[in-house]
Design a protein around this nucleic acid. Structure first.
Length: 726
RNA sequence: GUCCGGUUAGCUCAGCUGGUAGAGCGCUACAUUGACAUUGUAGAGGUCACAGGUUCAAGUCCUGUAUCGGACACCA
C-alpha cells in the first residue's frame, strides 16, 4: 500500500490524482471491515486490538422493518449509532452493536393486505396459517435487502449476533414474561372498551389511535323531558340511561334510579335516571344518554352503577338487530336516516352545524375507530411505571435532554392499562386458553389447560397475537440472551438506547418497564432521542407529497459520508431536522477536500523523520491540534455529535487546509532543513490525526485514504480500530 | 382541554453552565488552472417575535403577550 510502486514524479498513489468518487470505494471498504471481524468485540479482544479488561459499550439497534427499504429516519439512526460505536471502539472499549430485523406485526400485515388487495384477494378469505406463512416468506425475501442497506450506510454492527424479532429466543423471553405477569397478578383478561378498527378487524392500543380534527353536525333531541346532544345518533338505539350531575339544580326534581317513559327512535322505552359526577353541567343541557358498549366514558359510568350494556354496532361497522328497521346498515349511511326519522317524530330539537371535535382514527388507515367491548389481555401498568420513574429519579436511567425526561415522566404519571391482544395474524401467538362461554382466560405455555375453572366449559386456544410492542419491548432482553447468555452478563444494561422520539412511549417506555420487570435493571443507561427527518422546507416526507428523499439515492449521488455528515451537523438531540440535498452536496465537497489535503500532504512530506524536532512555531501549532482533539472528544462524550461534527468540519477545512497548508507552502521549500522537516512532520501528524477524528463521522473516505497511506504514517492496518488520539 | 417546544441572516437551521451572534445554500467583489471537475480572500445582510423584570452585562435566566408546531386527552 505504500507509495514505492509509483513513479518518482508524483510520489503519491495514483488514486489521488482523480477526485474522490465514493461509489468506487464504499463497497470494497465495507467488505474489508466486515472481513476483518472487528465489528465483533470478541474478535477485537482475541486479536489484541482491545484489552480483555476494557470497559464495554453496547447499543441494541432498533430493528428496522425487515420487509421494506430504509428511509431517511433509518439513515439518521444508523449514522448516529455508528458514529457512537466507531468512536467508542477507537477509544479501546469493547464495543458491541447488535443488529436486528423487525417482523413489524401489524405494519407488515397492512402492507401485505394492500398487496393482496391489488391481486383481488382478501386476508379474510384466507386461513390464518396460510396468511402467516405467506407473510413470512414475503418478509424473509426482503430481509437481506434491508440488511444490505444497513451495510451501505456503514453500520459497524456485529452481524454474527443478528436477531429477527420472530426468532425462538425472542418468543421464549416474551412467553416467560407473559407467564410471570400472570403469576405476579399484573396480567388480567377483561371485557373492556377497546379501540376497534372496523377495516383492519383488530383492536389497537391507545397509542395507535390518531385523533383528527373535524367539523361535524351536532344534534339535539328531545328525550322525554330532557334535551340531549350527540354527534352520533346512530349509536343511540340502546340508550336507556339518562345521566346528569348530582348537583345540577335544574334537575334536582329527578332522583337517581327514577324511571321515565318516553318515545324514542323505534317506539316507547323506559329510561332510568342516573346521577353521576361525569355529567358536566356546563356541557349542552347538562344531560346525556349513554352508550356503554361504544364509549369509554359511558362504559365507566355503566360499570360504576352496574348498568346493562348492549352492542349496537357490529365488528364491521354495521347496525345490529337492536336498530330494527336500520339493521345491517353501515353506520355512516344510517346517521342521516335516523335523524330524519326522529325529525318526523318531532323529536329533533336543533342541529348545530359547527361542532368542532376530533375523532379517533386508526393510525394506519385513518378510518374512524369504533370503541367496542371485547375480552382482551391487559397488563397493569401502574406498578411497572412507578419503578420506571424511580429509575429516572435515581439517575439509573437518564435522557439526552431534560425535555425528553419531562415528557417521559408526564406520560408515565397518567398511564393506562395496556391492551396487548391483537386480532392480527402476523405476530407472536398468545400462549393462552380462553373460555368462549365466560371470557375467562389463563396463560398456558405447555398446552395443558382443557376446561374453564370458572364455568367448566371447554377452553380454546386464544386466536390472538401480541401487540408488536409487547415483544419489541423486550428486545434488549432477547438480543442479549437473557437470562443466562454471556452477552446478558457482559453487556446488559446496554449503554445507550438511540431511537426516534416519536416512539418514546410505544417502545422506549415499554422497554424500560419490562426490562426493569424482568431484571431489576433498566435495559439501558442513557436514552438518546433524535427527531424526525423532514424535507428541506421542514415538511414531513410522504409519498403523496412526493418529497421523500431515499437515502440510497442520496448515497449514490453524493456518497454515504456526505449523507452522514449532513444528518449529523447541527442536528441537536431531540429536534427535527431538514435534509437538504444542497447541504449534502456541501459535505461531498468536504470529502473531496479531505482527499486533496491528503494528496497535497503526501506529495510534500515524502519521507518523514519522526525523530526530528518541532520548531517552536510548529510545536505551538501542534498544541492547537491537541486542543481540538480535547474539545471534540468532550462533545462526543456528551453525546453532542452535532457540535463535534461541525467542529471537525471547520477545523479540517478552514484551519488545516485554508490556513496551515497555505502557510506551509513556503516552509516546505525552505532552505533550512530543520524548518522543512519540522513542517513535514507536523503535516503528517495533522493528516493522520484528522483522519482518525473524522473517521466516526465519515468512515468510508477516511478508511479509503488510510489504506493508501505509507506504512510509516500508520499505527494500525485498519483506521477503524486505530487508537483514538488524545 | 392538559403538557411540551419553536419564534436568530433572503431560505433551512445551530448557538453548552449569561459577556454585544454562527453554519449550509443563496448574494456581491476580487483572486486563482491551483493540492481541490474549482478553491481562496474580502464583503453585504440580523434592534436574536413583542413587552416588562433580574444583572455591571441577556438570543442565553424570570414573568407576561402574540404566533406557529408537537404530544397526550376528548365524538356531550
Amino acid at each position: 500500500m505504500s507509495d514505492t510502486n509509483n513513479s518518482n514524479e508524483t510520489n503519491i498513489p495514483e488514486i489521488f490524482l482523480k477526485p474522490y468518487e465514493p461509489t468506487n470505494h464504499e463497497n470494497k471498504i465495507y467488505q474489508t471491515w466486515e472481513n476483518s471481524g472487528f465489528f465483533n468485540p470478541d474478535v477485537c479482544v482475541k486479536k489484541g486490538i482491545t484489552e480483555s479488561q476494557a470497559e464495554t459499550f453496547s447499543i441494541v439497534m432498533p430493528p428496522p422493518n425487515a420487509n421494506g427499504s430504509l428511509h431517511a429516519g433509518h439513515a439518521l439512526f444508523v449514522t448516529i449509532q455508528d458514529t457512537m460505536m466507531r468512536f467508542k471502539r477507537m477509544q479501546g472499549k469493547k464495543a458491541l452493536w447488535i443488529p436486528g430485523a423487525d417482523h413489524a406485526g401489524f405494519e407488515t400485515q397492512v402492507v401485505y393486505e394492500k398487496k393482496l388487495q391489488k391481486e383481488g384477494k382478501s386476508r379474510f378469505q384466507m386461513e390464518p396459517k396460510e396468511l402467516y406463512d405467506e407473510i413470512m416468506q414475503f418478509t424473509l425475501e426482503n430481509k437481506d435487502f434491508m440488511l444490505n442497506q444497513l451495510r451501505e450506510l456503514g453500520a459497524s454492527c456485529d452481524w454474527s449476533r443478528l436477531l429477527f424479532t420472530l426468532d425462538d429466543r425472542v418468543i421464549k423471553v416474551v412467553y416467560d414474561t407473559f407467564k410471570k405477569l400472570e403469576d405476579d397478578k399484573l396480567l388480567y383478561r377483561g371485557s373492556r372498551i377497546v379501540n376497534w378498527c372496523p377495516k383492519h378487524q383488530t383492536s389497537l392500543s391507545n397509542l395507535e389511535v390518531d385523533y383528527q380534527d373535524r367539523k361535524d353536525k351536532f344534534y339535539y333531541f328531545q328525550y322525554g323531558p330532557f334535551v340531549i346532544g350527540t354527534a352520533r345518533p346512530e349509536t343511540k338505539f340502546g340508550d336507556k340511561y339518562v345521566v346528569m350531575h348530582p348537583d345540577d339544580k335544574r334537575y334536582k326534581e329527578y332522583e337517581h334510579g327514577q324511571k321515565i317513559e318516553l318515545e324514542w327512535i323505534n317506539g316507547p322505552i323506559t329510561a332510568t335516571v342516573i346521577k353521576d359526577e361525569a355529567g358536566d353541567p356546563e356541557m349542552g343541557s347538562g344531560v346525556m344518554t349513554i352508550t356503554p358498549w361504544h364509549s369509554g366514558i359511558d362504559f365507566e359510568i355503566a360499570k360504576r352503577h352496574n348498568l346493562d350494556y348492549e352492542q349496537v354496532i357490529d365488528w364491521r361497522g354495521k347496525l345490529l338487530p337492536i336498530a330494527e328497521e336500520f339493521t345491517g346498515m353501515n353506520i355512516n349511511d344510517a346517521r342521516e336516516k335516523i335523524v330524519e326519522k326522529l325529525d318526523k317524530k318531532g323529536l329533533l330539537v336543533k342541529i348545530d352545524d359547527n361542532y368542532n371535535h376530533s375523532v379517533p382514527c386508526c393510525y394506519k388507515c385513518e378510518k374512524e375507530i369504533e370503541p367496542q367491548i371485547k375480552a382482551q389481555w391487559f397488563v397493569k401498568m401502574k406498578p411497572l411505571a412507578e419503578k420506571a420513574v424511580a429509575a429516572v429519579d435515581t439517575k439509573e436511567l437518564s435522557f439526552s435532554t431534560d425535555r425528553d425526561e419531562r415528557v417521559f415522566r408526564d406520560w408515565m404519571s397518567k398511564i393506562d392499562d395496556w391492551n396487548i391482544s391483537r386480532q392480527v395474524v402476523w405476530g407472536i401467538p398468545i400462549p393462552a386458553k380462553i373460555c368462549p362461554a365466560c371470557d375467562y382466560g389463563a396463560v398456558d405455555l405447555n398446552n395443558t389447560i382443557k376446561t374453564c375453572e370458572k364455568c367448566n366449559s371447554e377452553m380454546i386456544s386464544d386466536p390472538d397475537t401480541f401487540d408488536t410492542w409487547f415483544s419489541s419491548g423486550q428486545w434488549p432482553l432477547a438480543t442479549t440472551d437473557f437470562p443466562n447468555g454471556e452477552d446478558f452478563k457482559n453487556y446488559y444494561p446496554t449503554s445507550v438506547m438511540e431511537t426516534g422520539k416519536d416512539i418514546i412511549f410505544f417502545w422506549v417506555a415499554r422497554m424500560v418497564m419490562l426490562g426493569i420487570y424482568r431484571t431489576n435493571k433498566t435495559p439501558f443507561k442513557t436514552v438518546y432521542l433524535h427527531g424526525m427527518v423532514r424535507d428541506k422546507h421542514g415538511k414531513k416526507m410522504s409519498k403523496s407529497k412526493g418529497n421523500v428523499i431515499a437515502p440510497s439515492e442520496i448515497q449514490e449521488k453524493y456518497g454515504t459520508d456526505a449523507l452522514r455528515m449532513s444528518l449529523l451537523v447541527n442536528n441537536a438531540p431531540s429536534t427535527d431536522m431538514n435534509l437538504d440535498p444542497d447541504k449534502v452536496n456541501a459535505y461531498k465537497k468536504f470529502a473531496n477536500k479531505i482527499w486533496n489535503i491528503t494528496r497535497f500532504s503526501l506529495d510534500n512530506i515524502k519521507k518523514v523523520n519522526f525523530g526530528s524536532e518541532f520548531t517552536k512555531e510548529d510545536s505551538e501549532i501542534e498544541k492547537k491540534l491537541t486542543e481540538f482533539i480535547t474539545e471534540t472528544t468532550d462533545y462526543m462524550e456528551k453525546n453532542r455529535y452535532d457540535l463535534a461534527s461541525e467542529k471537525v468540519y471547520h477545523f479540517v477545512w478552514h484551519y488545516f487546509a485554508d490556513e496551515l497548508i497555505e502557510a506551509s507552502k513556503p516552509l516546505l521549500t525552505s532552505n533550512d532543513e530543520i524548518i522543512r522537516n519540522s513542517r513535514k512532520r507536523l503535516l503528517a501528524t495533522y493528516l493522520t490525526t484528522s483522519l482518525k477524528i473524522l473517521h466516526p463521522f465519515m468512515p468510508f473516505v477516511t478508511e479509503t485514504i488510510w489504506q493508501e497511506l505509507p506504512k510509516e504514517l500508520k499505527d494500525s492496518e485498519l483506521l477503524m480500530v486505530t487508537k483514538w488520539p488524545s
